[in-house]
Design a binder for these strands. Structure first.
Lengths: 144, 144
DNA sequence: GCCGTCGTAACGGTTAGTGTTACGACCGAC
DNA sequence: GTCGGTCGTAACACTAACCGTTACGACGGC
């Protein structure tokens, strides 16, 4: 499947809440975020729910309810968001285990797993090096 | 994203052909490779067809037909295979363009694209650092 | 009690990957 | 020239994931 946009929408939501809070508001609603991201409020609530389980945001219910950051933008990295909304590995191995009687079939999975693990570890380091504060700064730096 | 196994199966096929040729055989059939990878010959032919378009393998038709490497295992990298069988980007942006009247919605796509591009460039460097010769060596190094 | 928002279930549409069948195209062997 | 094995590719069904949408109960400030 072509890549999905879960990380993008989740990062969008977190940056939006962060900026909104800096403007003096206590909470942001899924409706507001959905308007900015041009999607459905339920999509936002689902993603933010996963971020809440990861301890990145908090939600309040009842009247005047909405979402707030649980941590500073500086302490939230793209890796945090990624791990919260993207469970699977980057590359998958065979769907059904290859022929264990074949030399290649026997050794290919350990070999590729080792290679893939190293690559994914590097990817995670990259994602961990970008905070949502960085993202917001670059967003605000866009020329109009 | 639920990862797919196209890169894995394609690398499996290339390594299999490479080893088979070292054992003195001229060509490998999709049937043989499919048996090793525990999948369907058509799946192998489809993937190898993309590798052929990328200039990594060659195919012969008619009787005694099959597949052969077009280049040395040492000169084929995981990046070559990846580019041949995985067209899309790693992370996708918004499906529908965000609200351009919103500060976040306006700047988020350029910001994320820049970040994503840097990460993908690093991923490509990693993949380019692993040859199919490396893969085959690690495959054969598996203890029985 | 009212009303706005979250939380979540349920459903359908879209897309991609995968497995499978089928059949024509091709070509070496004989 | 025929035969038989393999590629090349279309076609279809199945699965899974993501996404959008509707609906409705839960919650809590007012």
């Amino acid at each position: 499947m072509s890549a999905n946009s879960r990380l993008t929408i989740a990062a969008h939501a977190v940056a939006w809440i962060g900026l909104y809070q800096r403007q003096g508001h206590a909470v942001a609603t899924s409706e507001q975020i959905a308007t900015s991201a041009n999607t459905n409020p339920v999509v936002i609530r689902r993603l933010l729910g996963e971020l809440r389980r990861a301890g990145l945001v908090e939600s309040r219910r009842g009247a005047g309810a909405g979402w707030a950051l649980a941590r500073d933008l500086e302490s939230i990295t793209l890796l945090d968001v990624h791990d919260a909304v993207e469970p699977g590995p980057l590359f998958a191995l065979h769907r059904s285990t290859p022929d264990q009687g074949c030399v290649i079939g026997y050794g290919i999975q350990p070999a590729l797993r080792g290679i893939y693990d190293g690559i994914e570890e590097n990817l995670r380091r990259e994602l961990a090096g970008v905070t949502l504060e960085d993202v917001l700064r670059e967003v605000l730096a866009a020329p109009r």
